[in-house]
Nucleic acid binder design. Structure first.
Length: 271
DNA sequence: AACCAGGGAAGAT
DNA sequence: ATCTTCCATGGT
């Protein structure tokens, strides 16, 4: 799989400037630090790249206090941040993975979406040598050039609908052709990046904001139409039904600048 | 069986 | 511009 948990260790294969390494990440005892373990001696620049990767993946450079100061005064968020104190927004640093995962998750239940992603990774993702007897080898998320060469019929056996297959392949082709890149999106203002994403077939407001949250780390990205967010509001506000657009707007009125964190914490409250 | 699920495109008005 | 329909599939 893409990553696995082994006791206290999180294991993931990552591509660091062309170096394919298996990282083992675990909390360092009695400190607030993380320990990153390498299988063999890697040069210092790769160790640094690994640290940067982990910092971005888990948003370690973000100061949570301003968000907490806001959330403590918000009756909906207060109990959620209290229950998950210290949690950071777990990102999806790779743009193709973020877009593909968002498209896969459109309009289907989450367990099935995970199954589809797993099939995609195990069918088209490159394996890192060395195998775990139970979970199989660590795999990388499929490279855009591999998916770009497929036709929708190739993905049908994985139970992709024709549309999902078209969307994912189309995004892979944009990336492979260099007409879309995370680097260029990060150079733009958040609103411009959002418009760029919305122009892609298969990417609507929800997907653009999801990618803004999880990949570009735009603090104000807010997938207001998200079904999980609606579920959290239904429960948190005791509505007994899905919230109306006006109720969502009212709930989020005080979240300015922290919409992404608020949404992420509310998703956590559903687990 | 009906409705929902971490929507979006295409067509209709 | 905004509303409606269709897309596909598994879970509850």
């Amino acid at each position: 799989m893409l990553h696995r948990i082994e006791g206290e260790q999180l294991v993931k294969a990552v591509d660091l400037n062309g170096h394919l390494v298996r990282l083992k990440i675990q909390p360092a005892a009695d400190t607030a630090m993380l320990l990153i373990e390498f299988p063999q001696n890697e040069p210092p620049e790769i160790r640094t790249a690994a640290a940067c990767y982990v910092r971005e993946w888990f948003g370690l450079d973000e100061d949570l206090e301003p968000f907490y100061a806001m959330a403590r005064k918000d009756p909906l968020l207060a109990p959620v941040v209290s229950a998950h104190r210290g949690l950071r927004l777990i990102g999806i640093p790779d743009l193709f993975e973020a877009l593909a995962w968002a498209i896969i998750g459109q309009q289907i239940n989450l367990p099935f979406a995970y199954t589809m992603k797993k099939r995609l990774v195990e069918t088209y993702g490159e394996a890192l040598p060395g195998e775990d007897p139970w979970s199989g080898p660590e795999r990388f998320f499929p490279r855009p050039d591999v998916i770009a060469a497929l036709t929708p019929d190739d993905l049908r056996p994985l139970q992709f609908s024709g549309r999902k297959a078209e969307y994912v392949i189309g995004v892979a082709q944009l990336l492979e052709e260099g007409r879309l890149s995370k680097r260029s999106l990060l150079r733009m203002e958040a609103a411009e990046a959002r418009e760029t994403l919305l122009a892609i077939r298969g990417v609507g407001a929800w997907t653009a904001d999801y990618v803004g949250m999880k990949c570009l780390r735009h603090p104000s990205a807010f997938p207001a139409a998200d079904a999980g967010l609606h579920q959290a509001l239904k429960i948190g506000l005791g509505l007994g039904r899905k919230p109306l657009p006006a109720e969502i707007e009212q709930a989020a009125a005080g979240w300015r600048g922290f919409e992404a964190m608020a949404t992420f914490y509310l998703w956590q409250s559903l687990l």
